[in-house]
Design a protein around this nucleic acid. Sequence first.
DNA 1: TTTGGTTTGTGACTAGGTCACAGACCGCAG
DNA 2: CTGCGGTCTGTGACCTAGTCACAAACCAAA
Lengths: 221, 221
Amino acid sequence: MTATDWIAAFPGLKQLEPAITRRLVETSTVVRLAAGTRIFGPGQAPEAYLLLLEGVVRVQQVSDTGREIVLYRVSAGESCALTTACLMGYEEYQAEGIAETDVEAVAVPRGTFDDLIASSATFRKFVFTAFSVRITNLFRVIDEVAFSRIDVRLAQKLLELGSGKGHIDSTHQQLAAELGTAREVVSRQLNEFQRRGWITTSRGAIDLARPEALRQLAAAP
Amino acid sequence: MTATDWIAAFPGLKQLEPAITRRLVETSTVVRLAAGTRIFGPGQAPEAYLLLLEGVVRVQQVSDTGREIVLYRVSAGESCALTTACLMGYEEYQAEGIAETDVEAVAVPRGTFDDLIASSATFRKFVFTAFSVRITNLFRVIDEVAFSRIDVRLAQKLLELGSGKGHIDSTHQQLAAELGTAREVVSRQLNEFQRRGWITTSRGAIDLARPEALRQLAAAP
DNA sequence: TTTGGTTTGTGACTAGGTCACAGACCGCAG
DNA sequence: CTGCGGTCTGTGACCTAGTCACAAACCAAA
């Protein structure tokens, strides 16, 4: 990945006007962050607009009582859109962003970001679409936390995390943090799933034995 | 309120460049909506950027099971920021906006909004700050729904709704929708508050007898 | 093989959401 | 004024989920 061709990784940016593209490429830098790095958090404002080339960033919230909940994830090809709102609005961010894997990203400085927003309708569309997706997503999170049963939510999360390989490397505690619930609750639900033969568990890992059964539960009203 | 002086109602817009101000005033229209009007909702995309001059818009979500939760309110002097994200990103909105009182607002057409974003740093700042505030707020909602006790949340809500006059005109059902919980739960908590002498209740109304007691509960960890 | 940290299991209890239904209250038509 | 229908509130029984305390299992490094 050289400094000049990363634009190709973002479908929404391919249509950018040539002069704009040059400005973007010239002033941005490609940064690498090790897994586990805290990218932003309360009292730690982000100072650049991030476009992810590789890896995953997890955005989560920690309550006063120490319980956690995952708000959303940013993957390759996406931007840290909400971070930007706070970047632009100078508000303090309540959530924190953690590099879940090694991350490679383009850091667009504040000034360039502002210029791009001003001068390119394509870039505006790109940024606002990203916003839009995240916000719709947040609304879904609120809906689920407030109104969905925990077994349904856990089934959904298992399918989401184990998509494809049918295997998940997470502790019960980590799954609880995903859902914003308590570890014991996850343990009990997993036991129930295992009793029904839907999954098999071992320390720090889960295998989906009957994903279709989970899918049926996940689709419950 | 004439068509030319409403800008004064928005502190963030006072610094706008004169040419921009003219453009904004000339292409926007002041609209009036009766209390109860549904301004936007699922399958009903907003087609203008709204700046509230008078009244309150309630943005809420209705779950499949019919339960509701209030996400936030937009008051005079504020903008329907999140709506705009969806307006710009062309995403379908999951939530709905209801005029809670009679509402007077400036409707800025999509084209003008786009022009303003492009040409005025002041307007950008205004819009992004509004975003920022809303998102921070949404994060707080998620935190409270996921981790706060219902008695604490109800006490907070009573104080919020009864600010000043110490009187609230809401049914238990409406309060439940504010918090995303069930009516019975609210009824029981209100009975408990009344038993302690903190409030007095009557059909469709609540009076705060000892707000300082509620405040103490609301501040609980 | 011991030791210490991490992960998981479990029982007892509390908080809160669900269900079913009863009664209270209110405005209004007769 | 008196019923009447609709809305609002109260309540008990029950279920789900979160909390607390503690034990057991597992793993890795000393």
